[in-house]
Design a protein around this nucleic acid. Structure first.
Lengths: 200, 200
DNA sequence: GCGAGGGTTGACTCGTCAGTCAACTTCGAG
DNA sequence: CTCGAAGTTGACTGACGAGTCAACCCTCGC
């Protein structure tokens, strides 16, 4: 019963507190002391576990983005139509938001879309996700499931951009998030990107 | 010949310099003195024309966003199919980027997608644009040009999100911007959103 | 040529905050 | 019980940068 680890993982406590603080105030406008206060630990402890304020956000991003990349890879391995793969990816991302809106808000607002600071630093990781989606579209075009003539790279951007925009709508609070709203959103996104808006 | 105005409009000079500085360094990481240096004016002059650093960015955003809203309104007045309206809007936004990439970068990165700072402040203006696009989709669904079953609000987000994502690709420098790249991009976006990826 | 008002200057103030560090506490091993 | 290492504390420092302000310079009307 005597565990060699401390009862509570303070490092985790700090990371979780940072998510809430970054989501509430934004990375640039919050102070490190806000994170420490929120976590209920001393100021200095943040610097015991992390080299800098930046490293806290880096850690949060890399942790979560890694999980997402893994999920996309797993989905891509399945033997299902491309449309269902895209549906599964949209589902995963929307569910990530449903499960932890603060974390997704931080990742999107402070990293994925921050061209001058963290976005530039993690551009490689971000691109890996795009390219995986691109690959799915490419293969579907080769197999005849998707029509040719639309660049897979642009299709991937349109798809991912549509998802992020919907999340942004929730983040900004301009779209209501009722109970079934999340599942409807997934369907609308996939239906728009795969099926198109036009009458057929 | 004797103009009552000074030969050069220093206020304009400051705004234009701010665009370059914000684009290069980001709003939070640049100093007011960087703007003054870039404009070739004294530090204090920035505060002669603007109440605060924030007001400089607010001004840039409101100026440009107003022009865009006007453009969308004008396009919406035309008697053309919805698809062509969307094409014209995509065209306008992409051309805005082509004409002044720095300004568009600043508006997207620092305002449109900044949920905690300027985005929240200008949420009303940002929403006006979404709702205009939403209206176009709604009308097209009523007229039978677009199929029903996709929420116009989500369609608008998907459309606008796709555009912003492509611009973001250019901003991050992950998509090459060759001469005809801009026009191809417009077509891909509209073709994806209106026609869909799937084989028909 | 003189005075007034707007335009322009940049040194300075003053608050803020990331990061440091020396001291204290906890706990397990011997 | 004792020692040491790891975990934890928070007061302090040093840099930095937004915003102020008093003085300076034009130019134009009289």
């Amino acid at each position: 019963m005597a565990s060699t680890r401390p009862a509570v993982d303070k490092r985790r406590l700090i990371l979780d507190a940072a998510v809430r603080v970054f989501a509430r105030q934004g990375f640039h406008t919050c102070r490190v002391s806000d994170i420490a206060d929120e976590a209920g630990v001393a100021y200095g402890l943040v610097y015991h576990y992390f080299q800098s304020k930046d490293e806290v956000l880096d850690t949060l991003f890399l942790e979560r983005w890694g999980v997402m990349i893994e999920a996309i890879l797993e989905i891509d391995r399945r033997e299902i139509p491309a449309r269902e793969k895209l549906q599964a990816i949209a589902s995963f991302i929307v569910d990530s938001y449903r499960h932890d809106p603060d974390l997704m808000k931080v990742i999107i607002v402070e990293v994925t879309r921050a061209a001058n600071s963290f976005g530039a630093a993690h551009i490689g990781e971000i691109n890996r996700a795009y390219r995986l989606i691109e690959g799915i579209v490419e293969q579907a075009q080769a197999s005849g499931e998707f029509r040719r003539g639309i660049s897979p790279a642009f299709a991937a951007m349109a798809f991912y951009g549509a998802i992020e925009q919907v999340l942004t709508g929730w983040i900004f609070g301009v779209v209501d998030e009722d109970v079934d709203g999340y599942d409807r959103a997934k369907d609308y996104i996939v239906e728009t990107i795969c099926g198109g808006l036009q009458q057929r």
